[in-house]
Design a binder for these strands. Sequence first.
DNA 1: GTTAGGG
DNA 2: CCCTAAC
Length: 599
Amino acid sequence: MVSHKCVEQFGYKDSLLPPNARAPRSARRRSIEKTVVSEDDNMCAIDLLATVAGHLSFESGSSLMSVDKLIEDHRLVTQNSVKMEFPEEDTPLMPPVALLSQVNSYQGSLSPCGFSSVINGKVEDEAEGFSYSGGGGGGGSDAFQVGNFSEDVKPGIDGDAVVLDARPNVVVSLGGSSSRTEVPSIGNCASHGVRDDVNLFSRDDDENFSGYIRPRVTKNSPRTVPRIGDRRIRKILASRHWKGSSRHADTKPWRNYYSQHQKSYPIKKRKYFDHISDSMTDDYRLRTKMHRGSRKVSSMKGHGTSFVSSDAHVKLRIKSFRVPELFIEIPEDATVGSLKRMVMEAVSTLLSDGHRVGLMVQGKKVRDDNKTLHQTGISQDNTQLDSLDFSLEPSSEMPQLLTSHPSGHAYEEVLPVCQAANLDNVLGSDYHDAALFPSDPLGNNNMTEDLKAMIPEALTDLSPGPLCRKPKKSEQQQQQQQQAAQRRIRRPFSVTEVEALVQAVEKLGTGRWRDVKVRAFEDADHRTYVDLKDKWKTLVHTAKISPQQRRGEPVPQELLDRVLNAHGYWTQQQMQLQQNVNKQQQETPSQTEGMLLLN
DNA sequence: GTTAGGG
DNA sequence: CCCTAAC
């Protein structure tokens, strides 16, 4: 406490800080984000699909192979040149990538580097055999069903998103998933894919409004922490939790300010994408087959008795692939080409959100990546093996690009990289052809805007080969994307909060935002001191402008008057302080020099 | 880690 | 709200 005060009063002792501490935050963060980005690049969902397709299709070696290994990065797979093996009696494999490459063909300019590198060789040749459930050779636009998918539902799935299905020796026609809401896709992903973040915007959360409304006691009890990537919040939480509890353990009357004045306001919940949404009825499934593999009897004895270590192989294979149901709304006068693009974008978006692979055996999720296949029940001997489902799940590492934003303006705030400049690279110049996306009479070209949002990053990043037309993203762009994905939700200050802020600033002044935070917003985790500072800034501005110019929830004039008063008072204080300092320096310049010399 | 200010 | 510079 004491030392803290000292620092506050005498300013920062630069020399006391480690050199690293002074490094710009951006620099410090950049290194972290870099790894995230590259990881993201590596784990493009489509990559994953391809990987799984590949893995499922070859003789995967010992069943002791861990699940983890099974779904490792496809780059490793291809590099290691795993033996691909396709049972002859089976219908040709159609990997998911083929679907997309077909879609890809709709716009040749899109991505020459698209999927070919992933599926070159054998798989590519078999692309013709692709079929989606419900039949059809998968040619042209038949590859999609628009708005009319079957509604098979599979019980027991608690997973998300894309589902790969495999069964031993059976051509599986999987029953669907447990409930419609469980199966995500474009629109649904938004709430489903980032389930952890959803709490943030849930009514419950809005009304409880974290922090200050809670009694102090709950501070240490488990609670939901906003995960939607505000680094500041995370940092503050981290630090507050260790240093905070003891420091502020005492009850202070003003802490409970909000408990008397608590107020909730509605958080607008808008629909994510009006023109494309899924019905939540259809899953997104790769059908696979599990084959009885050759059995090399080489039991390993004496290694852990519980292991049944026959060197048995399990062959898995994706039989077909289809996209989930998509609802597409498009003006009649839009071109067929634009429709195709929309579909392409929708599908790609679905796959572009940094998914990871999940595995379910007989309806149960297998979370332990270290289990062997055999231990998991994936065994050639397991004739009752009902189902083996692979799913693409949203990565928990970071909020999903398209799915994390609760606001309808996701495409503006979450995906700034997907705007014109980049789109041109992806789609070519005709993308902006007015005929493709006619604006509505009011000039709101929502369609175009939304479509921009739908352009997936992963799509263009699939194989950064020399042929790839899209230039590699600059580091800044990557950083932008990351940051955009992590932008916090906008949470307007309530009058109550404003009042607390004003009161605190009246007391503490305008230069001690951390103290303001601790004093009046200690438990409001979603309000950082920077937020408070910013709010004060806008409050001062609001107070200066005419009431007609003000927007949002009106702040009582009485409060604004106080804002102006406090602002004037404290700026004056600051000026006086500065004057005193200047005066001192002018009067006794030698004194300070002498002090320095002494040190 | 905080503060200040521009965007 | 975010970002950056500077403390």
